[in-house]
Design a protein around this nucleic acid. Structure first.
Lengths: 366, 366
DNA sequence: CGGGGGAAGTTTTACGTATAACGTCTTTCG
DNA sequence: CGAAAGACGTTATACGTAAAACTTCCCCCG
């Protein structure tokens, strides 16, 4: 057996010759119009494929002479060469593509998150593919079936727990947006400083003199909204003589309309300030108020959360907490890049700002 | 040499043994935690890698026995095997991924288009990556640099001409959404039936008795909006005694507010009906009307286009033309699939529907 | 003058998959 | 009873790239 091996090794010519012929055939065939490969570029520039890879990969310093490098680049331009990413990905074992999981694309908010993440990603040579998580898209029992791309990492925003385990099972680097920050999942986390947002709202309304509050709360179970409810209660409890009621509502204009109408026409003293978990909820509240003959802000102050385009479409314009969606996406991507490079991502929350507009005023204003 | 071959053939054990050792080395190294490959599955199931590929690729009928196929599937499940898409793409020369180019993600509309396209894509084993075209994202001199994925095709929505040529230069199968339909580009096209949308609006308003119109027009150069303006003019010209003025505005609430305020307070008879090229423009018009003391719909009827969530957030709710964004995306993807399969995509326009709400009424209503 | 060392490449290999081409072994049929 | 035809696999190869390892050639230094 060894002898056999030896005999083949010592006769390389036959091998090489066969290879040559084969290659010639290939290039003749490809001469038609197929996409040029690095080998075609190499042939055009009169160098080896490896040289092309070095030059175009910008790793040629001290390995290829400047004139040769120029020739290669020229040939590549001439042929309109574009590296085959599938091949590159296979070789490198990395796709430089990450998945962004969003709960839905029904508002501009997640569009902003995507935009921010994609911008930072592009700066680092990464791409971002989107996975709107719930129903809506195909079979998709599995996020990764739908994202045809192979992935280097995942940014998951407000994810359901089951989908999360699917991801973790794959051991992919993971960053969670606005999710449980107590480190129980072990994943990196980027949060908006929602607590501070609530503080600012409470301070603003208390400062105007409000004491009777209604919290129009998103009825979806989510860490964000739980924290928000708790913080609001705490802030108000710190001031004597305040009252706080809560009305849950689905995050939709109609849902909010129904819930707000019921809550505002309930017996007992009518609240003078309405704190909404979302700008859409506020929009529903506007309609409820108008239907009940309540003027905003004279009879009822309203605040929102998000600062969507909707906020300035309302009349009066909505006082709301601005979330910088793009910044959120940027930070998420930066955190993921940190994880990918085995660095520890920083854990500072993203600041939010209260935007004061016409929907809030002292209670009982004329 | 022939002798050599013969001797090896008749001594298969040696060969197998050598192979075994090699594999063992590899698997020992990989035993750590690397992702399992089809070879690992093969080893676990006691078959060749080719058999694994056949079974999992569902091409095994008559080539692999049922029990063996089961063993392979079991092993794959056991190991949590997931095919390496980069390798598959390289082998097949196709990525089953298409690019969706959208002008921006600032409204739900394009989110809907994406959702619809992605659903159809998923049903056919395709993925969709998103490219929000203009500024906003990174360097992106070139759409394909940002889309790290290699692409099988492109769906381009309302694209600028220069980006288009970049795409066409790549000879990728292309479908254009709501773009020039005169076939001059040679690309397949899917359009919304905007002409019919305008007809319905005109009919509705004329039927209510309106004769004096203002067209609040999107000031971006786009085939869609040009067609719309022309059709509106034609429809109204068909009825004697009608007047039509046009006010261009940037597509934003503030822009519309400014333009509408100016147009509505211009000298001459005030229009009784305001046709807006976009729901956002309508939102701006609402604010202008309120500021001028005009009641909607009593003093001014307003119509929009899109039927965004915004339309029902307004008070009164906006009469508008509903565009089914998801259907649009679905049709776009179906057309692209047709092109990819060398079929000719159908050229029927997508129907739109007028949704009558509270913002329109007969002129001079109490 | 010998050889160490850099410059400028080239040859070779591996990434993981899909599939064409090739072997066996058993069954069937003329 | 010999061969053709399945059934059930296997072996070998190509996809296009990146990069490690190797080859030349030339210059410079001790």
């Amino acid at each position: 057996m060894c002898a056999v091996h030896e005999s083949r090794r010592t006769d390389p010519d036959a091998r090489i010759h066969a290879h040559d012929v084969q290659q010639k055939d290939r290039s003749t065939v490809a001469a038609g119009s197929a996409r040029p490969t690095s080998r075609d570029v190499a042939q055009a520039a009169g160098v080896s494929q490896a040289a092309v890879s070095l030059v175009l990969g910008d790793k040629w310093r001290g390995r290829v002479s400047e004139p040769t490098a120029d020739r290669v680049r020229e040939a590549a331009r001439e042929l309109g060469y574009r590296p085959n990413l599938a091949a590159r990905n296979l070789r490198l074992g990395s796709t430089r593509t990450v998945l962004l999981v969003v709960p839905a694309l029904t508002t501009e908010f997640f569009a902003g998150v995507y935009t921010g993440a994609a911008r930072v990603a592009a700066e680092h040579g990464f791409g971002v593919v989107l996975y709107p998580s719930p129903e809506g898209i195909g079979p998709a029992r599995d996020p990764f079936a739908s994202a045809q791309a192979a992935l280097d990492g995942v940014i998951a925003s407000s994810m359901a727990a089951d989908a999360l385990t699917a991801i973790r099972g794959d051991q992919l680097p993971l960053v969670m947006l606005d999710s449980d920050p107590d480190g129980s999942t072990g994943a990196a986390t980027v949060n908006l400083d929602i607590r501070d947002g609530v503080r600012q709202v409470a301070e603003h309304l208390l400062g105007l003199g409000h004491r009777s509050f209604l919290h129009l709360a998103a009825d979806i179970p989510s860490w964000t909204f739980e924290v928000r409810a708790r913080e609001l209660a705490e802030q108000l409890a710190a001031v004597p003589g305040t009252a706080l009621r809560t009305a849950p509502a689905p995050i939709s204009i109609d849902g909010a309309l129904t819930a707000a109408t019921a809550a505002l026409s309930a017996p007992g003293p009518r609240p003078t300030a309405l704190v909404c978990d979302d700008d859409k909820l506020a929009a529903g509240a506007y309609k409820a108020a108008r239907r009940l003959g309540l003027r905003i802000p004279e009879d009822l102050s309203v605040t929102g959360l998000d600062d969507l385009a909707l906020a300035t479409a309302l009349d009066p314009e909505l006082t709301t907490v601005r979330l910088d969606a793009e910044l959120f996406g940027e930070r998420g991507m930066q955190a993921l890049l940190a994880v990918l490079e085995s660095r520890t991502p920083p854990r500072d929350d993203i600041p939010v700002t209260l935007v004061t507009r016409g929907s809030t005023a002292p209670p009982g204003a004329p």
